[in-house]
């Protein structure tokens, strides 16, 4: 195998088809970026779920005019439920202290919170967060109970929203991926046509399939790899802009955010996908347009 020959063919092929090559690089980059973003969103959702379900607490807010017997009755009901791990009483004062910790990153929010404004509540920890409705229905109608709120109820709405965005990202990734495949297909077809003299002679003098098709496949795979490299940069940029300087700085303590480890974990897969996508597409195209 004459590697120098194959490599020089790849180089000149990429230059000859510069516009097509750039188009392939860009579409591969964009489609892989959307895939990467969908991946990061999934990772973020699962991180958030772990955090919230790990700390799942049902808050039973008490009415402002609740009496001591009512407080005790509510506590007894809660602690007697088998689903409940513990029920912790949060006084108005403690609620204020907790709020100060929770919103320490958001001074604007904190300005409107004063001791005594926040209602007292029972913070209920469940063995199984999914059993939340049983607990809610047991205490909801008791006198002295204002509202039963669970983090998971709020989160579910959020998750549905993020799931929607993730699905949209996947759809866009799929559409652009299809465009990338069609572009690669066309690029290879044009390249095979442009070099039909050379490949015709190669066939005639008995060059192997690897020698005839190799440069085409390598050429497009190189473009695919470049596209993948671009997408790695874009995915990193999105993490910095939308997470580090976006939601993480606006709401730092609502949930832990994904770190660089998660981002780096996507890199090998995106690169592999970029290469495979272009290699497989070009091999299939050559089978149709380059007889050996």
């Amino acid at each position: 195998m004459r590697l120098d020959y194959v490599l020089s063919e790849v180089g000149s092929g990429l230059r000859r088809n510069l516009t097509m090559t750039v188009a392939v690089i860009l579409t591969v980059a964009i489609s892989l970026t959307f895939l990467g973003v969908a991946w990061l969103m999934r990772a973020q959702i699962s991180t958030t779920k772990d955090f919230w379900y790990g700390n799942i607490e049902v808050s039973v807010f008490l009415a402002p005019n609740v009496s001591q017997p009512e407080r005790d009755a509510i506590r007894d009901t809660l602690t007697q439920l088998p689903q409940v791990e513990y029920a912790h009483y949060v006084s108005k004062d403690e609620a204020y202290q907790r709020a100060k910790v929770l919103f320490k990153g958001s001074p604007a929010l904190l300005r409107n919170v004063h001791p005594g404004v926040l209602p007292e509540s029972y913070l209920v920890k469940l063995h199984d967060p999914h059993k939340y409705p049983i607990v809610a229905s047991a205490v909801q109608t008791m006198p002295g109970v204002d509202e039963v709120v669970t983090a998971s109820g709020q989160l579910k709405k959020l998750f549905r929203f993020v799931d929607g965005i993730q699905f949209a990202a996947l759809v866009v990734a799929g559409v652009v991926l299809l465009a990338a495949v069609l572009l690669i297909f066309n690029t290879v077809r044009v390249a095979a046509f442009n070099r039909r003299r050379e490949t015709g002679i190669m066939r005639l003098v008995g060059a192997s399939m690897l020698f005839i098709q190799g440069p085409f496949v390598l050429e497009v795979s190189t473009a695919g790899l470049m596209g993948a490299a671009f997408s790695l940069g874009l995915v990193s940029l999105i993490k910095v802009v939308f997470i580090d300087h976006g939601i993480a700085s606006l709401a730092p303590s609502v949930t832990p955010y994904i770190g660089w480890g998660t981002v780096f974990a996507t890199f090998p897969w995106l690169a592999l996908l970029g290469i495979l996508l272009s290699a497989v597409t070009s091999v299939l195209t050559l089978q149709r347009y380059l007889r050996v």
């Binding site: 003299r197 005639l204 003098v205």
Partner: peptide
Amino acid sequence: WKVPALRRQIGTVFQDFRLL
């Protein structure tokens, strides 16, 4: 996949030369 080996034993010349 053995066709290339066969063609290495055959030289071919055409009316239109087919040079690069």
